[in-house]
Design a protein around this nucleic acid. Structure first.
Lengths: 166, 166
DNA sequence: CTTATCTTTCAATAAATTTTGAAAATTTAG
DNA sequence: CTAAATTTTCAAAATTTATTGAAAGATAAG
């Protein structure tokens, strides 16, 4: 396989994978492109290599920076901004977990807290409260587990699971 | 808060949460509705309570069954199919991990394997191979870790993370 | 077999999301 | 300061994804 074909396949697949992880397709493709570029790229480079518009490029780069998956790099003497990808995969995963926890799990926890105060003591209400409490308990644990996971280092995490051999 | 309002909020939030987890909004809402119903519901019940069409109901129920998040239950003497939700949250999470691993991670692993054979030994090719190999290594480990996670029981998992206190 | 009930399919439609590109805003060199 | 380069914004357009509903397909009771 030619390098060019390989690069293209990688960018496509990374885009697809990302789009299932709260990172839209283009955003993930930009990340992929930066991953396989040994030097920082400008917004213009990205735009040309991926055939996307300036506006699209700009918005997705900023989203990536916001997620902590891409960093801005200023080249001395250059006026343009250049960008590099976070290449440590464990770091990438942790950033994604952090963002999604904030945007999804935490709001859900607030709703659960809110609705756990429904009034009434009939059977239907009790059943509802029971289900909510159950989910609340589980979600709270998941939240803490993810906090710890993000603090953990890659080797610990992988090692723990690998050694289970259960 | 009234029970009815609480139920509504729960269904909405679960729908939103689900839509970020590869489960579309309606699919997650159906699961939510079944979670808080103490008795099995028919497709018709679901359709009426969520104000969605028959076709939509049917397709999403089948998707949920496919994911292992909902089960069909036949009531003796009744002609209709009835449905109940998987209520064990750890089980729910495991099913989602299993499905997504199959649909996302595994295809990515195949692509990585495929593109790790690019030809050429110039600097660019070497760099590309290095990045791919790195991701391949990490993804492989993640894959195994998830396999183990799915085999593990809830207490082990939560316990391990909770006790880290790092 | 016939009929009533229930389930499934799928093309058309609607809704949601992403992308574009032109205009506005910002930045920096001179 | 002015002007050129670069970045940002955002309404309109394109694309993707989800939903509808009518028709076809099952299923089982009589």
């Amino acid at each position: 396989m030619e390098l060019q074909e390989g690069r293209q396949k990688f960018i496509q697949s990374w885009g697809t994978l990302g789009s299932h992880w709260g990172i839209n397709r283009t955003m993930a493709q930009i990340h992929a492109l930066l991953l396989i570029s040994n030097e920082p790229l400008s917004a213009n480079d990205i735009m040309e290599q991926l055939n996307i518009s300036m506006g699209n490029t700009n918005m997705n780069i900023r989203a990536l920076i916001d997620w902590g998956l891409v960093f801005k790099e200023l080249k001395p003497g250059e006026r343009k901004d250049f960008f590099v990808a976070e290449k440590d995969m464990w770091e990438v995963v942790k950033r994604i977990i952090t963002q999604r926890k904030k945007k999804e799990l935490e709001p859900m926890l607030r709703v659960l807290e809110d609705i756990s105060n429904v009034e009434g003591n009939d059977a239907k209400t009790e059943e509802f409260k029971k289900v909510v409490k159950d989910i609340q308990l589980f979600s709270g644990k998941a939240d803490s587990a993810l906090d710890n996971l993000v603090k953990a280092d890659s080797n610990w995490f992988i090692g723990t699971f690998m050694s289970m051999i259960k």
